[in-house]
């Protein structure tokens, strides 16, 4: 109406440059107004939320806990991976030599092995040394003394040069060493490392499954909260529709509300994980000390923190987008 009326009255022969210039200024001005409105709604929704801190906190806490679970598990896995890196190095091959192998033969084998490209370190235990160590560790000291003959073979302990996270190469080395005629028995203590990797793989998949399920839960929580907010403001929505508010205009405050829920949820999740790690760090260090290992739990790095906050915000936005999309159409004036 007014629009078309203006169009009719617009002089058609108006000079072009003036027109485009006024248009550009108008566009910039409108953009500025638009951004200003966005900023206003942005902080207005925050103000609205902060008027009811308990309900904001409760919703954000639910989101926070849901986000904290997979994040926490992720961090624990990362730490376990780091630890298992250490265990990797601890994996070693024990070569029990044929009985009756002369000391000199054994020493030659050791120097051969020391040249081997896939071997990092070699440690030789003569039968006597092996017996002494066994006595020390087993506590059967006196009982063994009664034996007439040393029953233990010479042992060469081989520390493989490890390709990270790949037990397969170690096994190839094992097969190679087993072929040596001087070797009676070769044993690789790697089974438990493999199992650990398998368990960590499962846990890693578990993190994804858990994260997906909990993301869904966050969407539902945000969606439901926004649905209630929409119902509470039903009259306002009707009025705004009546005086020409677009869906985008009506959607905006709810989207920003979802944004804030998501952000606060992310912050709460960060706090929960950080506090848990802080609490766990003491006992973990004590445990590590028992294994003559100095190990500190790695906390949330920047990447994880940013990822966590962005996930929270995105889930908040998407959850409210879905809720608004579903419920806005139902509210019509008339």
């Amino acid at each position: 109406m007014r629009r078309t009326r203006h169009a009719q009255h617009k002089p058609r022969s108006r000079p072009r440059p003036a027109r485009s210039e006024s248009r550009r200024v108008g566009l910039a001005g409108r953009l500025k107004t638009h951004l200003l409105r966005h900023a206003q709604v942005f902080f207005y929704t925050l103000g609205q939320l902060s008027r009811r801190p308990t309900s904001l906190l409760m919703t954000a806490a639910v989101i926070g806990i849901a986000l904290a679970l997979p994040t926490g598990l992720h961090v624990v896995l990362k730490n376990a991976q780091q630890l298992s890196g250490g265990w990797d190095e601890a994996s070693q091959i024990s070569l029990f030599l044929q009985r009756g192998t002369a000391d000199s033969q054994a020493r030659r084998l050791v120097s051969q092995l020391e040249e081997h490209p896939r071997i990092r370190r070699v440690h030789y235990l003569s039968p006597e040394e092996a017996l002494a160590e066994f006595q020390r560790l087993s506590g059967f000291g006196d009982a063994l003394d009664t034996l007439e003959e040393n029953p233990l073979p010479a042992v060469v302990v081989v520390q493989p040069r490890l390709q990270r996270n790949d037990p397969a190469t170690t096994e190839a080395l094992l097969d190679e060493l087993r072929e040596d005629p001087r070797v009676d028995l070769a044993r690789l203590d790697v089974q438990w490392v493999k199992r650990l990797y398998a368990i960590m793989d499962i846990l890693r998949q578990g993190v994804y499954v858990l994260a997906s399920l909990l993301a869904l839960a966050v969407l539902l929580v945000v969606g439901n909260t926004i649905r209630l907010a929409i119902q509470n403001r039903r009259d306002e929505i009707v009025i705004i529709k009546l005086i020409g508010g677009t869906d985008a205009f009506i959607r905006r405050p709810f989207l920003y509300t979802g944004f804030w829920y998501g952000l606060f949820g992310g912050i709460i999740a960060w706090l929960l994980v950080s506090i848990s790690l802080w609490i766990l760090n003491g006992p973990v260090q004590k445990l590590a000390a028992l294994y003559q290992n100095s190990f500190t739990l790695t906390g949330l790095n920047t990447q994880t923190t940013v990822g966590l906050l962005i996930s929270g915000i995105l889930l908040g936005l998407v959850g409210s987008w879905i809720a608004v999309g579903r419920h806005l159409r139902d509210i019509e004036p008339g």
Partner: peptide, 11 residues
Amino acid sequence: ALPLIIAGQPR
């Protein structure tokens, strides 16, 4: 002011 804000009028 609501109709004007909806229409995106400057402050």
